[in-house]
Computed example of a mutant assay.
Amino acid sequence: MLNLPKKVTIIEVGPRDGLQNEKLFVPTAIKKQFIGALRKAGFLEMELTSFVSPKWVPQMSDAAEIVADCLEADARNIVLAPNRKGIDRVYSTDCQAVAVFVGVSNSFNLKNINKTTKDSMAELAPIIYELKEKNYFVRACISTAFYCPYEGKIDESATINLCREFVDAGVDELSVADTIGMATPDESFSLFSKLKNLFPNTFLTAHFHDTRKLALANILASLQAGIDRFDTSAGGLGGCPFAPGASGNVATEDVVYMLERMGIDTGVDLDKLIDAIEVVRPHLSRKIESGYYRLHAQTV
């Protein structure tokens, strides 16, 4: 008998993590329509955009306008802000949920934000404390939790130790990512079982990329470990500009289809989710290749 929850929370990351690596600039108006359509599909938690340097991530250059127009009172509206400059921009908005990130791998971190993991945490810890003092929801994104494109396999204890640092700093959520899609189900079960046991009062979210078509298997293993929160991206959009070979995030529609077929409530309307993908699809540089989408597209 599988150990399954009755309900799972899907955090839709398409508007931020999904679009950040798109080669073509998606018009701001289309991004707003995309977010609105995703809301209609039932998502109550979503990554909207990120306050990062337009020089390095041009796709996010319209972040201030997205935040100004796309906050929803009854939803968790998450904005990525990786450093003090980004956090100060968040303070100028009405957004109340912030994501920060650090890679377990030093090499990845240096490529990404030109800081070691240790230096990143030294900068972020007081910022997290400050955010919590101001009653913000703080989400910590743990990159390269399983494997790194530069260092190979990451020791499980290193990931656990970094998660512990974030929990000690006061974060509300740990989003633990298989950044380059190399994790196997046994590795996912092992890590998430330990994290669930160690940090029972922290939201634990699994974030899988589908580079090697193992994401759904890893999600099933994570369910067995007691995880009931997953980051997914509509259309399987995404990838990391600083992680060579990382394909898109696992497709929201494939995850929702699997979970609903297993009797697990996601609160997501698949038809409306497909409608949301259709909003952004004409503006993408790549095809939507998720299994559910391809089958749906053949029947409409």
Rank of each mutant, 00 (worst) to 15 (best):
T211I: 07
G103A: 15
D172G: 08
V8N: 08
P200V: 13
N249H: 06
S233K: 01
E165I: 07
L223W: 02
A63W: 01
E260T: 13
P185G: 10
L24D: 07
K287V: 13
A63M: 02
L131N: 01
K55C: 05
A221S: 09
N135R: 09
M60G: 05
V98W: 00
R294C: 12
L19E: 07
E253M: 13
L270P: 01
S50H: 05
D62F: 01
T144S: 03
K132M: 11
Q96T: 11
F166M: 15
N201Y: 13
I66N: 00
N114M: 11
V268H: 04
P244V: 08
S290A: 12
N106H: 08
R212T: 13
L124R: 03
P82T: 10
T202L: 07
S290H: 08
L204W: 04
P15C: 09
K213A: 15
P82M: 08
S290Y: 08
Q298R: 15
V98R: 00
S120V: 11
Y292F: 12
S188L: 09
I128Y: 02
L4R: 12
L295Y: 13
A225W: 06
K55S: 13
D228E: 13
I127P: 01
K23I: 13
D74G: 04
P15T: 13
A75L: 04
L24C: 06
V300K: 14
E165S: 14
G103W: 00
A243M: 08
F146N: 00
K31M: 09
A37I: 11
P5G: 11
A183N: 03
L191D: 02
F108V: 02
C70N: 06
K7F: 11
Q59M: 06
L48F: 03
A246D: 01
A217G: 06
G181Y: 06
D62C: 01
F146K: 05
A246C: 05
S247E: 14
V57Y: 02
L110V: 15
V67K: 07
H296N: 13
A276C: 12
P241W: 11
N21I: 15
G267D: 10
F51S: 12
D74H: 07
P58I: 04
A64E: 15
D231E: 14
S120M: 10
A73W: 03
A251L: 09
E253N: 11
V176A: 10
A215S: 04
A158Y: 11
L220Y: 14
A145N: 02
G18C: 11
T144F: 00
D178P: 01
D269S: 12
M121R: 04
K153S: 05
I35G: 00
F108A: 04
N112M: 04
L216Q: 02
F34W: 11
I113D: 06
E156C: 09
E65W: 05
V79D: 10
D271S: 14
P185Q: 08
